[in-house]
Design a protein around this nucleic acid. Structure first.
Lengths: 288, 288
DNA sequence: CCAACTAATGCTAAAAACGCATTAATCATG
DNA sequence: CATGATTAATGCGTTTTTAGCATTAGTTGG
């Protein structure tokens, strides 16, 4: 039983046509026919019900199609990860991050990594659902930069920094540090903020903040992309609440007013991962 | 990349010695050497660090050893299950059950199956940890007979029957149906019962029962095997509490006194499993 | 420095995989 | 109902892969 044979099988199971399937796997129809037959013989399982004209999966075939598809995927994932370990400092490392660090921490961090490990390729992704724990465990990513700590026996997670949360207003806005009391002063303001129904950490922080003051913001635009929000604020469309680090995006015509709330940044990685480069990068993060 | 090659790799990874590994997989040392090398070439990953004398795994090799071991096991499990589906009524079906039905429901059930499907082989197991849900989901079993309903979107679960829970006492015991009031009459009795700390459904039922009367039994012997308990009770070593169906074990010198508690029997199976025989057997259970 | 050990390699034989051409069965069509 | 189109299986020769034997080459322990 070859991985190759399984791929032949999966292709045929999808096409249900020997000629088309054979073309897809770049062998002749006769070869495919024989490979499938030898697979059936070796397993002692009838995979396809076929006459001279039609091909269809048996129940056992359907079962194998479903489960082999999953297993082959896992095989490929494992292979990719092994390759990363093999390549080490000259390989690739995947990093997932939350958008709000794109302007401050992340550029410095990436520069630092590139100075120390110039041959390393970095794969950056900003996940939308923010399930960093799952992404780490199934090897979809190697390092996660998130707003909350990940508590899992297979994952190490340490706090890198804290920063304050700020009101963001256009420069010509009446609000400033000295005349700001609390959120309820802002009940007539138009807000441009992240979707509060999301399950991200920042959304939940905002929900808590509004709850504390029993305050419901007049939201005119929802966006999860901080850069977009900043831009809209600078255009005078409304005000927003963002982590302080967005100041480093050097937005024009915008003023930041610190609130009495702070938000953390954590870095998380798989405990004892064999890819030593991951740990090196984590250590670099602590230096930045 | 062949399944065979992976098995070669896993053997060598364990032995770390080409000759011994080659013997274990029934090929020559030279062949094994070449197979490993071709695997390394194909993956583009160094698996072993070797000189003319020693062999040891690289980090990537360690990683692959760990994950391939798991995947190969899953492959075999999937194969076994596909085989079962292929064989259908002449194949095998695995049933896990709780001990307490061994004397009443189970014999009738098995006889019924054997009458209808004489070519079917049945694999019976009585799991100790009673995690029927997990056993079903990972295909370790096909049908589970348990005391509580399994609630999972991939599993169907229906109640087969209910029965009362009984006090079991030796025939010459002072206690009988007419003079029994409640559990607190039994505070001086010696009990022989299942370990209450266990996570089985029956253990938790007993815990609740005792809690209800704020009653702590003087337990002299703990055993999870009902047959053993019955035997000890009949020898006069103490009294016990068991489901009513143990009466069908036809124990000598023992009397059952019904309590005001009942316990259910559920049958559970994977929803829409491709092995049609499983559903047939489930339907038979409802007829018994 | 020699003997024992062990992984790699040259060579040859056997086995497996492949493609071409053909066969055999089925289906659609007039 | 005959005929051509379609399609999976198979006979056969070729190429590729795998296996074993014998040998080589480097390492280790005495």
């Amino acid at each position: 039983m070859t991985i190759q044979q399984i791929n032949y099988f999966l292709t045929l199971a999808k096409e249900l046509h020997f000629w088309r399937a054979a073309e897809k796997v770049f062998i002749s129809q006769s070869s495919l026919s024989r490979q499938i037959k030898s697979l059936e013989d070796e397993l002692g399982i009838q995979l396809f019900q076929r006459d001279k004209r039609n091909v269809k999966l048996t129940d056992a075939g359907k079962f194998l199609q479903e489960h082999w598809t999953i297993l082959i995927n896992e095989f490929n994932q494992v292979k990719t990860q092994a390759k990363k370990i093999d390549e080490g400092n000259s390989g690739r490392v995947s990093i997932t991050y939350v958008g709000s660090i794109a302007f401050s921490f992340l550029p410095n961090f990436l520069k630092h990594i590139n100075d120390k490990l110039p041959d390393l390729k970095l794969e950056l992704t900003e996940p939308t659902d923010e399930n960093h724990e799952k992404l780490l465990l199934d090897y979809s990513t190697d390092i996660a930069l998130s707003r909350d700590e990940i508590k899992n026996i297979h994952i190490d997670s340490v706090k890198l920094s804290s920063e304050s949360v700020c009101l963001v207003v256009p420069n010509n806005h009446w609000l400033n540090i000295s005349n700001f009391g609390n959120l309820n002063d802002l009940k007539d303001e138009k807000f441009i903020i992240a979707g509060l129904h999301h399950s991200t950490f920042f959304a939940s922080l905002l929900r808590n903040l509004f709850n504390k003051y029993n305050f419901e913001p007049k939201t005119i635009i929802e966006s999860d992309f901080g850069g977009m929000i900043l831009n809209l604020v600078s255009q005078g469309l409304g005000i927003s609440i963002l982590p302080h680090s967005f100041k480093y995006a050097k937005p024009e015509n915008v003023r930041f007013i610190e609130l009495n709330e702070s938000i953390d940044l954590y870095i998380s990685w798989r405990k004892n991962d064999l890819n030593k480069t991951i740990k090196r990068i984590v250590d670099m993060a602590k230096e930045v």
